[in-house]
Amino acid sequence: MNEMLLLRHGETEWSKAGRHTGRTDLPLTEHGEVQARALAPLVKEPFGLVLVSPAQRARRTADLAGLSGYEVDADLWEWDYGGYEGITTPRIREDRPGWYLWRDGVIPGDAEHPGESAEEVAARADRVIGRAKRAEGRVALVAHGHFLRVLAARWLDLPPQDGRLLKLDTGTYSRLGFEHAERVLVTWNAPVC
C-alpha cells in the first residue's frame, strides 16, 4: 500500500444536530448526498482495496462518490456510544458535567448499543490498517468521524485517545501515507464542497 484515502460519510440528520451516531443506521440528508457526490473526483484512479462501513450512510457515500467493487467491513463501524447513542454532548453534560468522550468514554447501553472503549475501537482500526498494509497500490476507506480519527492516531503510532486532536467533518477526505518510509498524515479534513 502506498496511500490510504479516508472518506467520511456525508451529513445525516443526527450528525447535523450533533447527536452521537454509532450503530443507529441513518440515511444521508440531501446535503449529505451533495457532499458524497462532490467526493467523486478523488476516486478516479484505481484502488487495490476499498473498504466501506456497513452503515447505509457510508455505503451511500461510496456509491455516490463512484466507488465500485468495495467490500463492506464491520470493523469500520463507528464507535459504539452505548447509552449515549443519539444524545448530544450538551445533554450528556447535564448529567456528567465536563464529560468528554476521549477522556471519559461511554456508559453501557442496551443490547444493540452495549458501548465500546477507545481501546476496543483501536483494535478494530489496527485490523483495518493491517489489511490495508497488505494491499497493492492505493486503499480507500469510507467510514465515520470518530472511527477515522482513531484510525489516523493508530496509523501515526499514537494512542487512540489522540484522535481527539484530529477534528473531522462530514463529507471530507483525508490521506494517510509515507514520507521516507515513515507513516505520516498527508491531508486532513479537506472539504470538497
Rank of each mutant, 00 (worst) to 15 (best):
S117F: 06
D73T: 00
S15F: 06
L166F: 15
R149V: 12
I107L: 10
P159S: 14
R93N: 10
V72S: 13
W99C: 00
A132R: 00
L64N: 11
Y84Q: 00
E120D: 13
M1V: 01
L185T: 09
V121Q: 07
D157A: 14
M4G: 09
G98E: 05
W102I: 03
P191R: 15
A40R: 15
G22T: 05
R93L: 06
T170L: 01
D126R: 15
G86E: 04
R138L: 04
L151I: 09
L7G: 09
K44P: 10
L165Q: 13
A65R: 04
W79C: 03
A152Q: 06
L7K: 06
R131D: 11
P46M: 04
V142P: 04
Q161H: 11
E116P: 07
D95I: 05
A122T: 08
L141I: 03
G130H: 01
H31P: 11
A74Y: 14
R57E: 12
T170V: 15
P54D: 03
D162I: 11
L168N: 02
H9P: 01
G105C: 09
E112V: 09
R138A: 07
G69S: 03
P41L: 12
G10P: 01
D104A: 11
T61H: 08
S68H: 10
W99P: 00
A125H: 14
L64M: 06
Y100K: 14
D110Q: 10
A152V: 03
A123S: 14
V186S: 07
A58W: 06
R164T: 07
D104P: 11
Y84C: 01
A36F: 14
V34R: 13
E45M: 03
Y84N: 00
Y173A: 14
L51D: 09
G171P: 01
V106H: 00
R124G: 00
G145V: 12
